[in-house]
Amino acid sequence: MAAFALGALLSGGLVFAVTGPDSTERTADRLRTEAALRDKTQIKDLTALARTTRDRLAPVLEGLALAMPDGDAAAGPAAVTSADVGEWREAVTAAVASFADPPSGETATNVARSSLASAVRQLATTVDAYAATRDLRGPSAASALERAARQRSDALFTWSVGATALDAVNVEAGYGHQHVFLQAPPGDGALTPDTEPEGHHP
C-alpha cells in the first residue's frame, strides 16, 4: 500500500513536471500581469491629463469660436486682442508640453494618448495660423482664416478619436465610461460621446 502511494506521488509529480508551466511560461505570465497593472495606472493618469487639458483648452476654443465663427455667414468675427492670442498660445504650449515624453503602454492606450497629443499639437498650429491672419488684409486674410478654421476642425476631430479610444480603454480597465471630449461645433464631423452614463461599466 505504501509502495502504491509513493508511486502515485511520484507519478503525479512527474505529470506536473511534464504538463505544468515551466519557468519561461511563469515569467511570461508575471510580465503580462505586471503590464496589465501598469496599463491600468497609465489609463487613470491619461484620463486625468485629458480632463486637465480639456479644461485648459476650453477658453482657447471659446476664443477661436468668436474669432472664426462657424455656420453663420452673417456673424462676423469678434474683436480679439494680441493679449488674447498670447493667452491662447500659453495655454496650447502648456498643453503640448504636458504630453511630451509619454510612457510606453499597451497598444490601445498608446493610440488614445497619441491621438490626444496630436490634437493638441494641431490646435497649437491653429492658434499660430490664426495669429498670422491678423497681419493680412483682403482675400489673403480670408483665405488664411479659412485654412486656420480647417486646422481647428482637424484638431477637434483628432481629439474626438483619442477621446473615443480613451473611453474604450477605461471601460476595458474597469473604470467605466469616461467622456473627455472637447466642445466641437455642430456638424463639424467630430465623434461624440455615447449615451452611457459617466463612470458606468457595462
Rank of each mutant, 00 (worst) to 15 (best):
residue 41 T to Q: 12
residue 33 T to S: 11
residue 91 A to E: 06
residue 69 P to S: 08
residue 151 Q to Y: 04
residue 66 L to E: 11
residue 75 A to I: 07
residue 87 E to W: 03
residue 192 T to C: 03
residue 12 G to S: 10
residue 89 R to V: 00
residue 11 S to C: 11
residue 121 R to T: 12
residue 30 R to T: 12
residue 78 A to Y: 06
residue 91 A to K: 13
residue 168 A to P: 03
residue 61 L to Y: 01
residue 193 P to Y: 09
residue 94 A to G: 07
residue 171 V to C: 05
residue 101 D to P: 01
residue 37 L to I: 09
residue 170 N to R: 13
residue 18 V to R: 13
residue 46 L to M: 01
residue 40 K to H: 08
residue 76 G to T: 06
residue 184 A to V: 05
residue 1 M to R: 13
residue 19 T to H: 09
residue 64 L to P: 00
residue 69 P to V: 03
residue 145 L to S: 15
residue 108 A to S: 11
residue 80 V to Y: 02
residue 101 D to G: 05
residue 113 R to V: 02
residue 23 S to C: 00
residue 68 M to L: 13
residue 131 A to E: 10
residue 140 S to F: 08
residue 101 D to S: 10
residue 7 G to P: 03
residue 181 F to I: 07
residue 6 L to S: 13
residue 11 S to D: 04
residue 193 P to I: 11
residue 26 R to T: 03
residue 4 F to T: 14
residue 192 T to A: 14
residue 129 A to T: 06
residue 27 T to D: 14
residue 4 F to R: 15
residue 10 L to F: 09
residue 18 V to W: 15
residue 23 S to A: 15
residue 118 S to N: 12
residue 71 G to R: 09
residue 197 P to N: 03
residue 117 A to T: 04
residue 10 L to N: 08
residue 133 T to H: 06
residue 84 D to W: 02
residue 198 E to V: 12
